[in-house]
């Protein structure tokens, strides 16, 4: 794949290599998707189900990025793309993760307040 002379590049060789790349990407994605749905339908505890679904999703995103979008650390252009994607992901993690953290925290505090009010307002013996 590093030959610079196009005449020496065997197109069939490259094509079959890249075809295999797509086939692996499809196979792995299919397995991870089926795994996620199977985890949902299983009788595992909820925490296990959620962790299995999250891990499967993360692995599948990585598979898509590598096999379909061709992001990698080697290769000048795909490296630049990957750095852009990773930077965007960090920004997103700060914004989306921060939003979720703040809202979940607020939600917890509001529940506490409501529960206290309910107890205070409850008639004796009720």
């Amino acid at each position: 794949m590093t030959k610079s002379n196009t005449d020496m590049l065997d197109p069939d060789d490259g094509a079959s290599h890249e075809l295999r790349n797509y086939a692996i990407g499809f196979g792995v994605s299919l397995l991870l998707t089926v795994g996620a749905f199977a985890a949902l339908l299983s009788h595992l505890p909820t925490v296990w189900k959620v962790s299995a679904i999250c891990i499967a999703a993360l692995l599948q995103v990585m598979t898509h990025a590598r096999n379909f979008l061709h992001l990698s650390l080697s290769g000048r252009q795909s490296r630049e793309d990957l750095l852009l994607v990773m930077f965007s992901t960090i920004l997103l993690a700060i914004m989306a993760g921060g939003t979720y953290f703040i809202m979940a925290d607020l939600d917890g505090r509001m529940h506490d307040m409501r529960d206290t009010q309910d107890m205070e307002g409850m008639p004796a013996g009720g």
Binding site: M1, L9, H70, R76, Q77, D81
Partner: peptide, 12 residues
């Protein structure tokens, strides 16, 4: 050749 390994077009 070190451009996109797959979504690229290739030197030709």
């Amino acid at each position: 050749n070190t451009l996109y390994p797959g979504l690229n077009l290739g030197d030709s």
